[in-house]
Write a protein that binds this DNA or RNA. Structure first.
Lengths: 213, 213
DNA sequence: GACCCACCGACAGGTTGTCGGTGGGTCTAA
DNA sequence: TTAGACCCACCGACAACCTGTCGGTGGGTC
């Protein structure tokens, strides 16, 4: 029996299942047959809504990053929060949670998902770096920071955050602690912030019970 | 007429052609048929020497990175060269030339080669970061640097160098200049080196006519 | 009752990896 | 010096997938 849905409804259904499958098996190993079988639609239906498998991937990346970026943008724009706390919250929000569930997020970093990972990183970077750079300029103006290269500083900080806090598999809490401390220290230095100032801001975030969103 | 070669000879032949093809068309778009046709061997021959297409990719990554890493290691170990110059030379040598020709190197960053790129980066990082970290410790001891986290500092610097100096396509010389200056400035800050000290060291390298090797 | 568009599924043309068999080169023994 | 045995690089047909195409169909709406 043929089930008809609106294009948008069906598209989202396809993206949901594809996201699941790409996370489970990797982009290369998950086939379009897997997708249509799990949904129960025909081959032609899938290709009626998406021109190619890669277009499905792009749509997923779009969906996943859009949410993260707009959340970070909201944090950054909220001038009622102290500058250093806005910076920390934004960076943390991007790396703790990328919009999807944790299992999905964990699987992204397997070699089979290199393409997905690269596309997500590129998209995230393109969206967030300019926002962070603005924040750094704000800090330059009020004396919190002393950075001659706000854009490049933002790029370096975000790049490292993205890459370094990727492969968390099999890391001990002590290693994680050290890694985080090092990241904070280096970020302070890059921005020319007072030593310990960022660290203090982060502490304050975690004192409030809602570190994110 | 059947041509017989030693296993090693044939393996290298396969890797040479595969490297060419992956660079030309990308890992996904270059098929094993392309490889065997260009060489003029049968399907079975290729799979007699390599268990899978991915194993071929791994072997190529291995070959390409091994050379770069050992060159950087040689520079770093040469204590007759001033510390700051060793650091600069090593980092530059890794990013200017990754062992292969320029055309090959340029193609690595296209989306189709995400897997190759990721594998190369991981391998390069794993090989080089410990060496740079040792160098930083050396600088800590003699007062050139002041770094509480040598490993993480090395990781951050190398990560950014790898990622940032990847997508050079369509960048103007001015942008490149600015990007490089920013990178040098941030590296000095991360390492706690005196301002301008790294910059001076790099200038000296380029005064001698042989900046690399 | 006509029209639109989501849906269908067979099919073409490609892919990777397998497997039983073959023959060139070498080593040994008569 | 020659005959034979053996090893292993080589072969190519084949199975089992894969992605993307296309002419056709029917449910819902106007």
């Amino acid at each position: 029996m043929r089930v008809v849905k609106t294009a948008e409804e069906r598209k989202n259904e396809i993206l949901d299942v594809a996201e699941q499958l790409f996370a489970e098996k990797g982009f290369d190993n998950a086939s379009t047959n897997d997708i249509i079988n799990r949904i129960g639609i025909a081959r032609g239906t899938l290709y009626h809504h998406f021109a190619s498998k890669e277009e499905i991937l792009d749509a997923i990346v779009d969906r996943m990053t859009r949410q993260s970026i707009s959340r970070a943008a909201a944090i950054i724009a909220d001038k009622s929060i102290p500058l250093l706390q806005r910076l920390s919250s934004a960076v943390i929000s991007l790396n703790i949670n990328t919009g999807a569930g944790v299992e999905v997020f964990e699987q992204i970093h397997r070699p089979q998902n290199a393409l997905l990972h690269q596309k997500m990183q590129e998209r995230l970077m393109r969206g967030v770096v300019p926002l962070i750079a603005k924040l750094i300029e704000e800090g330059n103006a009020d004396g919190t920071f002393d950075s001659a290269y706000p854009d490049e500083a933002a790029e370096m900080i975000m790049t490292y955050a993205n890459v370094a806090f990727d492969a968390l598999a099999g890391i001990t809490p002590e290693q994680m602690e050290r890694k985080s401390r090092a990241f904070i220290c280096h970020t302070e230095r890059i921005l020319g912030a007072e030593k310990g100032s960022l660290d203090a801001a982060i502490m304050k975030i975690f004192e409030n019970n809602s570190p994110l969103q």
